[in-house]
């Protein structure tokens, strides 16, 4: 009986392992350029969108793309394993969104010294060797939010900042950007709550803070789920639309509705799909020897409000509904 159990358990584990390794790998084909894209957390809609960018650009340039998902920021070792496997089998170039800025340094160093072309896309790996980087400007994002809020509060009031998980360096940049701007206004009081990026965590935190600080005037959220959670808490508090300003991050369908209805005042956007395309173009140029590392390319960011919602160019930040992975 015990042996049977152990055996069955073993079979089950092996099946899982097989299934998951199959999801990651696809067949190798001939003489085409072949690149690999590694993302830390494929379920995040941000990466779903970016995948669209990578894929369409690869298609356009006739490059074959392999897609690897580490399955969460905690799976640093899994990502390291993926990178090592890639080095083993040989690959023309890699686009990397790192699970950990520090943890991935040794393997990234190895890749660079093996002269495998590499583009780090947004989620940094702190390697000191020359590499191509295409990055969001976290500090700028944070500042844009701060500027909007300070402006609308006329320099006075309590503001809650929900920067997301504290371990992510981009979140830290955004937070720093916010605080460095807001601190010039003595009337602005900033409260920071690092939270996991989920709507219920956002809601719970905002509900609690509203009790501790009934005078709360604005909430700055650093991810779409947090933004929705924050809005739900504000709605439940009995505040009227606009009593508490909510400024979010990016724009998904739910957030767009909230903005149209007047619960979400503003959000900070970037063309992340365009960014993915640019990353592919950079990598291909490096492979062809047209671009030499190091290079640090920062993309643009902009603020969207209800007024500009229908006017801004969405090409760089949306993908067609039919496209689904």
């Amino acid at each position: 009986m015990k042996k049977k159990t152990a055996f069955l358990a073993g079979v089950l584990v092996i099946c899982f392992a097989l299934v998951f390794s199959l999801i990651g790998n696809t067949q190798v084909s001939a003489k085409q350029l072949e690149i690999a894209v590694l993302v830390p957390n494929g379920v995040d809609p941000y990466f779903t969108a970016k995948r669209y960018g990578y894929e369409t650009e690869c298609e356009k340039l006739g490059v074959k793309m392999l897609f690897y998902d580490a399955g969460g920021y905690a799976n640093v070792n899994k990502q390291i394993g993926q990178l090592e496997d890639l080095m083993q089998r040989g690959i023309d170039g890699i686009i990397l969104g790192a699970t950990s800025a520090k943890g991935t340094v040794p393997v990234v160093d190895k890749i660079i010294s093996k002269r495998i072309p590499l583009v780090i896309d947004n989620l940094d790996s702190f390697t000191k060797k020359p590499v191509l980087r295409i990055m969001k400007n976290g500090v700028l994002v944070g500042q844009l939010r701060a500027v909007y809020i300070v402006e609308h509060l006329k320099g006075k009031g309590t503001v809650l900042v929900l920067p997301g998980p504290s371990a992510v360096s981009l979140c830290q940049d955004e937070h720093r950007g916010f605080v460095t701007y807001a601190k010039h206004f003595p009337g602005i009081k900033v409260i920071t709550e690092w939270t996991p990026s989920s709507p219920d965590a956002g809601m719970k935190t905002v509900e609690g803070i509203l009790q501790a600080h009934p005078d709360l005037k604005a909430v700055a959220c650093f991810s779409p789920p947090l933004t929705v959670g924050a809005v739900r808490a504000v709605q439940a508090s009995g505040a009227r639309k606009g009593d508490i300003i909510v400024v979010g991050q990016m724009l998904d369908a739910g957030m767009e509705t909230l903005m149209r209805k007047g619960w979400l005042q503003a959000t900070v956007m970037c063309d992340h799909i365009e960014m993915a395309r640019e990353a592919v173009r950079m990598l291909v140029k490096e492979i062809k020897g047209e671009l030499k590392p190091p290079l640090y390319h920062q993309i643009d960011h902009y603020l969207i409000t209800k007024d500009t919602l229908d006017r801004f160019d969405r090409k760089g930040s949306t993908y067609p509904k039919e496209w689904r992975k």
């Binding site: 379920v43 779903t48 369908a253």
Partner: peptide, 14 residues
């Protein structure tokens, strides 16, 4: 796994 394949990680609203 099933969920990931089904949603592609996108939140469902609207």
């Amino acid at each position: 796994g099933v969920e990931l394949v089904y949603t592609g990680g996108v939140t469902l609203t609207n």
